[in-house]
Simulated assay, not measured.
Amino acid sequence: MQIIEYIDRDIAAIGVADALASGLKNALLIQDKVSLAVPGGTTPGPIFDVLCAADLDWDRVTIMLTDERWVPEDHERSNTALVKSRLMQGPAAKAQFLPFYRAGETAHEAAPVLSETVRAQMPLSMVVLGMGNDMHTASLFPGAKGLSQALHPDAPALCPIEASSQPDVRITLSAAALKGAMDKHLIIFGQDKRAALEDAMGRPPEEAPIAGVIQGGTIHWAA
């Protein structure tokens, strides 16, 4: 793994956005269409604000989430709302978006069809990840119902997850889908996250899911 350190989080937002834009441009040189999977949460917002202005062929980019809460787009906890309001703006508004939530279906009911849709995009061109202090990434939470399936090498591209620490059922890209991406980036801020990542590298994926997917990736860190 390569670790890139930034002097502060504002500089990190610019640096990470530049790295992602460069990676996407390189991918577009060799692929007609590319796929970009991004996280929700608070960390990526400032990065999206910069990345959306990148000069590249956004109409050849399909954006999806690494994971989504099983709530409608207008729900306050929807990751889709974040992506559409902060990443798919300006030049990036030309990108295609692959939604996961399907009204009238449960995550378990929708997962098989959604998995086939995602599988058509694999291997994913670029995956951007976050990580919690519990060493989860995407919605691969230690101890969650569905984690074993999502960590299995032959898992479908998308798996439903139920974590006792979370209020919503979620759907997540499986470890195999994340690990198999051509370009992987993990963004973490703070000394606690840095310590958690170092701890994770010595643990099995069942205890530290990030350890099962980040091999060969780039770590972006700022205090």
Rank of each mutant, 00 (worst) to 15 (best):
L65F: 05
T66G: 15
D67E: 10
D67I: 10
D67G: 10
E68H: 02
R69T: 03
R69P: 04
R69W: 06
R69Q: 09
W70H: 06
W70G: 03
P72L: 09
E73L: 10
D74R: 10
D74P: 01
D74G: 01
D74H: 12
D74F: 06
E76N: 11
R77Q: 13
R77S: 14
S85P: 01
S85R: 14
R86N: 09
R86W: 02
M88H: 06
M88I: 05
Q89V: 15
Q89M: 12
P91R: 13
P91N: 11
A93I: 02
A93F: 05
A95R: 03
Q96P: 02
Q96W: 05
F100W: 14
F100G: 07
F100Q: 13
F100R: 04
Y101H: 15
R102A: 11
A103S: 13
G104C: 11
G104V: 13
E105Q: 15
T106W: 12
H108Y: 08
H108V: 15
H108G: 07
E109D: 13
A110S: 15
P112R: 15
L114T: 07
L114M: 13
S115V: 05
E116V: 11
T117L: 13
T117W: 02
T117K: 14
A120R: 15
A120L: 13
M122N: 06
M122H: 12
M122Y: 06
M126Q: 14
V127C: 11
L129M: 14
L129Q: 09
L129W: 09
G130P: 11
M131P: 09
G132F: 11
N133Q: 12
D134G: 05
H136D: 05
H136E: 03
H136Q: 09
T137F: 04
A138Y: 00
A138F: 01
A138N: 04
A138V: 10
S139M: 03
L140W: 00
F141L: 05
P142Y: 01
P142R: 02
G143Y: 08
G143H: 03
A144G: 05
K145S: 12
L147F: 04
L147A: 00
A150M: 02
L151I: 06
H152R: 08
H152S: 15
P153K: 04
P153L: 10
D154F: 10
L158H: 05
P160T: 02
P160M: 02
P160H: 03
S164P: 00
S165L: 11
S165D: 13
S165H: 03
Q166Y: 01
Q166D: 11
D168I: 01
D168H: 15
T172F: 00
L173W: 01
L173A: 07
L173K: 03
L173D: 07
A175N: 05
A176G: 03
A177V: 00
A177G: 02
A177T: 12
A177Y: 02
L178Y: 01
G180E: 09
G180F: 03
A181I: 01
A181H: 02
A181D: 05
D183C: 11
K184Y: 06
H185R: 15
I188A: 08
I188E: 07
F189E: 15
G190S: 08
Q191A: 15
K193S: 10
R194K: 13
A195C: 02
L197C: 03
L197G: 00
L197V: 06
E198H: 12
